[in-house]
């Protein structure tokens, strides 16, 4: 059972459970502070996916979850960005 975390430590504990339960061992995880600054900056609640390009700009953003949270769309966005960057490089 998962309760609303009251401290950052509890939030980290929930995140550990999440990583184990979902098998996310290879993905680095960051924990948002209790002020939820990251969530607010990206309007990310309850879940969302964002692709940032190498210049630090937003290349693609999913619709808000839960129904807008479609991981395969991230794959398509990555492929598109790779293709775009490759074309730029080849044209130089």
């Amino acid at each position: 059972m998962i309760e609303e975390p009251l401290t950052l430590e509890e939030r980290c504990e929930n995140a550990h459970h999440c990583k184990e339960a979902l098998g996310l061992g290879v993905i680095p995880a960051l924990i948002d502070g209790l002020d939820n600054a990251a969530e607010r900056a990206y309007e990310a609640w309850p879940n969302r996916i964002v692709l940032i390009d190498a210049d630090g700009r937003i290349a693609w953003r999913s619709k808000p979850g839960p129904l807008g949270f479609v991981p395969i769309e991230l794959n398509a966005a990555i492929q598109r960005e790779v293709k775009r960057v490759r074309a730029l490089t080849e044209n130089r």
Binding site: I2, L24, I27, I31, A38, P46
Partner: peptide, 9 residues
Amino acid sequence: MRVLRSGSL
């Protein structure tokens, strides 16, 4: 990179 806000719901 994954940012988790655990237990939001």
